[in-house]
Simulated assay, not measured.
Amino acid sequence: MTSRNKIVLILMLLFGLAITAFSLRDISFNSLIRDLATLKWGWLVAAVFSMLISYFLEAIVVKVLLRRETMDFPLQSALRIPLVEQLFNGITPFSSGGQPAQLFALVQAGVDAGQATSVLLMKFVVYQSMIVVNFIVALFIGFHFLASKMHALSLLFLFGFLIHFAVIIGLLLVMYWYSFTRKSVKLLFKLLRLFRNSSKIDRWEEILDEKINNFYQESLRLKRDGRLLMKIGIITLIQLMFYYIVPYFILLSLGEQHVSLLLVTTFHILIVMVISLFPIPGGSGGAEYSFSTIFSSFITNSSKLVLAMLLWRLLTYYLGILLGMIALVVRPKKIKQ
């Protein structure tokens, strides 16, 4: 981890403490202690295990994809990949550091850089596709509720969906209409040069061109291996489900028995989509606001609502950062070719 990343990590932890202090400003200390004392710890443990299973299933996806490359990739090394990803997603804007960090972790474990890039491209495509599928279902189930009660926030959900949907459309264009995509990109950069012609724009075009070519070559393999694609798609879908049900277990741990698993899961899917729009690492600030706003319909007690938000943030954000820091210092087992 670079010095800059360490500074950002410290700043994010301090920012998290500041948000926690702000959230607790109007909460009675005695009420908070009482809510903590009455927590149903079994459900909280279930929430922790749900997150750990989600990380484990992502590691299985990595292992399955590397097996396609005829590699016997150790499970210990595979488990490092999603954890390192969580760390760098959590300390970079728009989670932009996760992909390079995974590539570094794979190369560190002895995987060829080209093969590692190929694996991560396929993993990214499937992951984005499953997110969009989940979000479309969530929109049909819960959007009418949000639109009627939280109009401004519902617009953010739609905007988040459009961004992720545009990513999928772009990937599909590369896969099935390669020549048109290349021409469109070249036209875009020609238009940019009308306003500013610089070496930086040339460099951006070169990088994007390389990424498009790499993804196109990988897409040819994707289309030839439908069974593998379906397999990792199902695993990824199950992985996301374990992640999305975490708030349900948290609500149960707070004694909120009469809550709908379907609605809670649906709202969490929508919250995750909104978080991706905030440029601050981890969507800090926006994540807490979205959770508190949406789940206030389930929890009327302000003390329990804040505690639910803090527990959710601890498990879905800070746990990943902590485990990622541990994974970063663990020496990976080398692959067996």
Rank of each mutant, 00 (worst) to 15 (best):
I238P: 02
T316W: 01
F140A: 11
Y248I: 08
K223F: 11
P100I: 02
I91D: 02
M12N: 05
L252E: 01
M130I: 12
G98R: 04
P332L: 06
S77A: 14
L146C: 06
L36M: 13
L66K: 09
F15P: 00
F88E: 02
E218N: 12
R34P: 04
M51L: 11
V132I: 10
P279M: 07
F94Q: 03
G233Q: 09
R68S: 14
F298E: 13
D202Y: 10
R313M: 01
I235E: 11
M130A: 03
A116P: 04
V62D: 03
G97A: 05
Q102G: 03
S3N: 15
L328I: 06
L220P: 07
S28M: 05
Q86Y: 13
L171K: 00
I81P: 02
A138I: 09
L192A: 13
G286I: 07
K333E: 09
L262N: 05
I235Y: 07
F15T: 12
M122G: 12
A37W: 09
T38R: 09
K149M: 11
I168C: 04
L305G: 04
D209K: 10
L194I: 14
L262Y: 02
A327W: 01
F291L: 04
V84H: 06
S199Q: 10
M12F: 07
S260L: 04
I53W: 05
Y55W: 14
L240P: 00
V132A: 03
Q99N: 03
M230Q: 10
V167Q: 05
L188P: 03
S154I: 04
S77H: 02
L277M: 08
L106R: 01
L9H: 04
E210G: 13
